[in-house]
Amino acid sequence: MNGKGIGASLYSIVTRQKAFIFILVMLVGMIFSRSNFYSAYNLLDMLNSTSILLILSFGVTLTIIAGGCDLSIGGILVVSGILSIKLQDFMPMGWAILCAIVFGIAVGFVNGFLVVHQKTEPFIITLGMGLLLTGVAQELTNAHPVPAKNPAFMMIGNGDFHGVPNLVMIMAVCFALSYWLMRYTQFGRNLYAIGGDYDVARYSGIDVIRTKWLAFVISGGAAALAGVLLSSKLNTGSSIYGELTALVVNCGVVVGGTSFAGGIGGIPQSALGLLVFGMLDNAMNMLNITSYYQVMLKGAVIVGIIWMDCFANKRRREFV
């Protein structure tokens, strides 16, 4: 490391902390924009609307660190959201929410079986699982939004506690929990080891299959929780939200610095990565950019940042 010049260390900062730099650039840029971006209301609103994506990303981060990927979260999100509303006709609200989350955990379990136990490539198979669940969601609702009838259910996603929205608090709890899990428990460290080198982890006595499997189960559970919260926030369940969510969240995690190569990254990085997208959305709305340009900019950001991730992987390969 000592032999390298200032250019190389600058390069490594840019490639490692690209999300942080992106956020910094955006924050500085917005100072000159003459909009309400810097009002306390807007910043809190931004955090509130990104909360659901953040909860999704914490689960996905575990699977990506373990060298996998979960593209079925969009499907889990919509189905569990719809379930939590539909089941309220038959049972109390608490049980309905519990059932929806158990559903997500069950899907995560199946994903884990296919990817970890049967050793299939996670990318396309979880994409297929997402497609399956989207179909199920459309069938459940006839592709119409289903309204929730219980006002108490709506308050979960829209209420606040002394000015702090519930969603932000739930997100903070999830953040703390997953950060603790990845940083201070054996399970978290084992996940890093598995992502770093699967065979080495196996030979060092880690129960690789069970650990990685659990990562998929947690990801499914987190996606289901996010689905319930989304339904509660919008007071409706609909099958259309999940289409791009899965890919955007997975990209966001990579944007933060968790690499598809596995074994690198962490929960705070993912939070930063998703905040990039949340802030980008918010800033583009503030600047009155038309929605087509917004879509295009978002696509360009995804390509640009994944490109940088691939390029960094290539450099790493060449160093070895």
Partner: peptide
């Protein structure tokens, strides 16, 4: 049509497996 989407997803998963 909605159930057909689900069937397609299921077949994709099954085929890869």
């Amino acid at each position: 049509t909605y159930l057909q989407v689900a069937v397609k997803g299921a077949i994709l998963v099954l085929a890869i497996w």
